[in-house]
Write a protein that binds this DNA or RNA. Structure first.
Lengths: 186, 186
DNA sequence: TCTCTGCTGTACCGATCGGTATATCAATCT
DNA sequence: AGATTGATATACCGATCGGTACAGCAGAGA
């Protein structure tokens, strides 16, 4: 059999594995087990090993957020883009059933491996949201505070809903944040 | 030499080790290296191994929050207790330089090992804060929302300040949250 | 002084870690 | 057909994993 895998097909499986087990917890045997791909192929596509695999996941995540969240926030109608952000974020994180890998990596030593990528992800998110808020009528300092508060709140909601095993906490928190930002743009 | 260690002396060192490396990343060799205690003593005090060590840390953390945060929120003057909470939390987390181990454990598979302890920590925090908010004059539903938002925001601020390597983000976020709650109690 | 108890360091256990080498396979090109 | 290429499974590597066994050692009580 010659089943050819594409990086694009494998990376999302990596992502879920790292999400569930963390960087250290995601051993190569776990990864081969979940992807169904042997070490041979794994190292063929990712000669850099585990670190390259996780790096590919982060790049994949970054690309998704760039096109689905950041770009609309920067370029499209501000109010609409912000509203779409809440919906897309709720879907992406499966209403709290899925964590933010970037945030999780930031919390422990794994941060040192992907330092700049992790910082970028959040900087660009906050900056894009701030831009949208200002276009929607916020003053600069308020927009900055609210943007930080929004991104912050999302990360916190992920932690909390995981801890409580209650996805409604996540969706409810997003709603509260959305109202808060909406109130500030009129 | 007969240097007798107390569990109370060791546990905080465990805590920092788990914080920095995560549960999987905190190997026994790392732990012995940081504590300066050999495996012999380690397993003498903690026959249950790594899991018991981490469990002791969680119990330690829980006890600290109970006496320093939750109890005042439940019993003392509401406004004062809330104000004290922000100060104590900022100190405890070293202005964002130290993460919340409970939150970190919640994010990956480690949650399954300490499930009830993790959930309890957050449930009691939110409940205590809600109680204080109500005594300070909040309506019940608003108090619940604000309490969740507060705890949520703290967790998010920890993630964000770690990711950005910027402790000012943490302190600033706490300030914003404090203002938010203050505004709702008058 | 002589036990006895509690603590400690160390050697060791099987299992698994991340990673490498290689032989084989399927498909394509000449 | 024969050679070449890319993809795959597998065996294997030294290192380290979490955990155990145990011998020795210091101090308290007899």
């Amino acid at each position: 059999m010659k089943t050819v895998y594409e990086r694009a097909d494998i990376v999302p499986v990596f992502a879920e594995t790292f999400r569930e087990l963390g960087y250290e917890g995601a051993t190569l045997s776990r990864i081969t087990e979940r992807t169904g791909i042997g070490k041979g192929s794994l190292y063929h596509f990712f000669p850099g090993g585990k670190e390259e695999m996780a790096g590919a996941v982060l790049a994949d995540i970054d690309a998704w957020f760039e096109q689905a969240i950041y770009r609309p926030l920067r370029n499209d109608d501000a109010r609409q883009a912000i509203a779409a952000m809440w919906v897309n974020v709720n879907d992406y994180f499966r209403a709290g059933g899925r964590i933010c890998l970037v945030g999780a990596f930031a919390l422990d030593d794994t941060r040192e491996r992907f330092s700049s990528g992790i910082a970028d992800y959040f900087i660009r998110w906050i900056e894009a949201l701030r831009s949208a808020l200002m276009r929607a009528g916020c003053a600069e300092t308020e927009a900055q505070t609210l943007a930080e508060e929004g991104v912050c709140g999302i990360q916190g909601a992920l932690v909390l809903s995981r801890a409580l095993r209650d996805g409604t906490v996540f969706t409810r928190s997003l709603k509260t944040l959305a109202n808060r930002l909406e109130a500030a743009t009129r």
